[in-house]
């Protein structure tokens, strides 16, 4: 069943259009930077961008920082929100279940397919950004964010890999919200928008002093902590909290999704 879901996801044109669009924004940013040579002042604008002009090796991390706040969560929420509700709306859910595909198995297969999509999207963004970056800006040993000693190529690759995994996990949190909502409603649009509403609420609360007590528990709180992977030495504090927070969110939400989906009447 997992293979069937992966095949369905990879065969859909929407998957590849979404990934292409995700790639377009960082590429556009790179081209604009390269042609105008106008980088943001250090400390302003998206992370890493000020340093990219002198070093294209840093562009994968910069590209992740560009798509992370909005583009990537939207893409993930669309795919995950569609997972169950899309089948319900098309009427194919009932035929899958009587084939029969167990409800738990179907949910797991959907989850795997969403995770695969997220990883493919993040990796494609990073790899494209690497080629675009090194091509447009040239490459140099990777400097660290805090201006310490430079990273060796092996270290740089490893840390970019870790960054990809961290961003992937953060997006899994988004996917879990959308998947849970997707088991409740028969409209994929409602599930996607619901998940995005959660993210927007979290972002708004983060900027609010009055919500300070909630801060450490907001799902988007540690998203940008992957920047700390490029410090020397790595600043683990926020990264560890970010991973722990996402793991709890993902665990609880998926459990709720499973509990709901395995006991609900499928009337679509």
């Amino acid at each position: 069943m997992i293979m069937v879901e992966l095949r369905k996801m990879l065969r859909r044109r929407r998957t590849w259009v979404t990934i292409a669009l995700l790639d377009a924004l960082p590429t556009l940013v790179a081209v604009l930077l390269a042609t105008t040579n106008l980088g943001p002042q250090p400390g302003t604008g998206p992370a890493f961008l000020s340093a990219v002009l002198s070093n294209g090796n840093l562009f994968p991390a910069a590209a992740l920082a560009i798509v992370l706040p909005l583009f990537l969560p939207v893409a993930v929420a669309v795919v995950a929100g569609d997972a169950v509700a899309g089948e319900a709306q098309a009427g194919t859910l009932r035929y899958l279940l009587i084939r029969p595909v167990g409800r738990t198995r179907l949910l797991v297969a959907k989850l795997v397919s969403v995770v695969a999509f997220t990883l493919i999207a993040v990796v494609v963004v990073a790899v494209t950004a690497y080629f675009v970056g090194t091509h447009l800006f040239g490459s140099a040993p990777l400097p660290t964010v805090s201006g310490g000693p430079t990273l060796s190529p092996a270290q740089a690759t490893l840390r970019t890999g870790l960054a990809i995994l961290y961003v992937g996990l953060s997006m899994l949190g988004v996917a879990a919200v959308a998947l849970l909502l997707s088991t409740f409603v028969d409209s994929p649009l409602a599930a996607t928008l619901g998940a995005l509403a959660v993210l927007i609420a979290s972002t708004v609360l983060l900027t609010l002093d009055a919500a300070h007590a909630l801060n450490p528990y907001l799902p988007t709180r540690y998203w940008l902590a992957f920047v700390d992977l490029f410090r020397q030495p790595i600043l683990w504090r926020d990264l560890v909290r970010g991973v722990a927070l996402q793991v709890v969110y993902v665990g609880v939400l998926l459990l709720a999704a499973w509990a709901n989906f395995t006991t609900k009447d499928v009337t679509s």
Binding site: A90, T92, R94, Y95, I98, P100
Partner: peptide
């Protein structure tokens, strides 16, 4: 269910 074939409330397929 593996030994049952069914058509419930109209057909559905991936368009």
């Amino acid at each position: 269910l593996g030994r049952v074939g069914a058509l419930v409330e109209g057909p559905a397929a991936y368009g």
